[in-house]
């Protein structure tokens, strides 16, 4: 669900730090702070992003997520408060999306190989679908258990956004008033430019990585984008992307991208992903959530509401 917005560089931009984390390019902008303070804060923020990444990465055998997954079908795993909070959030997201946002759906990737450009057989999906289901995840005071071998959880659906919010909170508490945190294109704005003007965040054209489809002005809050162009293959004129419906196991196809503006990056990213998953009624969903959005449908048409697009 990574869009790659470019952030336009203008004067008064202050300090910019680029780094890699969460599987993508990241950027910090801090303005209006003395250089020492800005450096100190930036270091702490980047450290926090790496901490979240290391702790919850499914690629690291020692992460809590890997330990939960390794114990699937076996013993209960005790979780710390932060992990329990993410599990609570997974539960809330599942409920808010009528079961479409499901942190156990990652195993469908075993059937979808985006490098080979082939659509898995119905039989292959039918094998995997029984292993998908948040409601089957067992929880008791501070512990979690996956009931069946082969089941997995994965916080990838909001881990990046969570890290962006954590880093932003740390910067704001450190006295940063002007700047932004961008993790792989999901942007949390701390505050406007020092002169009060908004940051202009580019939304990538989903069909042309070098082109910006629109600029969105953000003074504070977060802008996150979910799109069909992060991992995908095209076959017979049909796009198959990595956002998969947990009920059918098939990629969503109604929207090329959905960008949402919300107070927190987790909320913006959550709404954007759920709107993708809701497909035909994605915009009804966003309307009911009452959030400003900018979306591009499968035909390339723009739909937007309450957003400072230009």
């Amino acid at each position: 669900m990574v869009a790659q917005p470019t952030i336009d560089a203008t004067r008064d931009a202050g300090m910019t730090v680029e780094f890699n984390a969460m599987g993508g390019p990241c950027e910090l902008r801090l303005a209006g702070l003395p250089a020492d303070s800005a450096n100190r804060l930036a270091r702490a923020a980047i450290e926090e992003v790496h901490r979240v990444e290391a702790k919850f990465s499914r690629y690291r055998a020692d992460s809590i997520v890997s330990r939960i997954n390794a114990a699937a079908g076996g013993k209960w795993i005790a979780c710390d408060d932060e992990t329990n909070a993410l599990l609570d959030y997974s539960d809330a997201m599942h409920a808010a999306s009528d079961g479409l946002f499901d942190v156990t759906s990652g195993i469908l990737r075993r059937a979808w190989d985006f490098d080979r450009s082939s659509v898995p057989s119905a039989a292959r999906l039918a094998e995997l679908l029984p292993l998908v289901g948040w409601t089957r995840v067992q929880r008791r005071s501070g512990e979690v258990r996956l009931p069946e071998r082969g089941m997995e959880i994965d916080f990838g659906g909001f881990g990046k956004e969570y890290a962006a919010d954590r880093a932003a909170a740390l910067l704001l508490d450190g006295g940063a008033l002007y700047g932004l945190v961008s993790l792989g294109g999901d942007v949390r704005v701390l505050g406007p430019r020092p002169d009060g003007r908004p940051w202009s965040i580019g939304i990538q054209d989903p069909r042309d990585p070098g082109r910006i489809a629109a600029h969105i002005e953000v003074i504070e809050g977060a802008l996150a984008t979910s799109g069909d162009y992060e991992r995908y293959f095209d076959l017979d004129g049909q796009r198959y992307c990595h956002i998969l419906d947990p009920h059918s196991g098939m990629p969503v196809a109604a929207w090329r991208s959905v960008s949402v503006l919300a107070p927190l990056t987790v909320v913006a990213g959550g709404h954007a992903t759920v709107a993708m998953l809701k497909q035909a009624i994605g915009l009804n969903y966003l309307d009911s959530a009452g959030v400003p959005y900018f979306s591009i449908d499968a035909g390339g048409h723009f739909h937007y509401k309450n957003i400072g697009k230009h």
């Binding site: 704001l172 008033l177 701390l190 505050g191 406007p192 504070e220 107070p263």
Partner: peptide, 10 residues
């Protein structure tokens, strides 16, 4: 709300 306090923090 806390995220609405950017202006107030000036």
């Amino acid at each position: 709300a806390p995220w609405e306090k950017g202006t107030l923090a000036k």
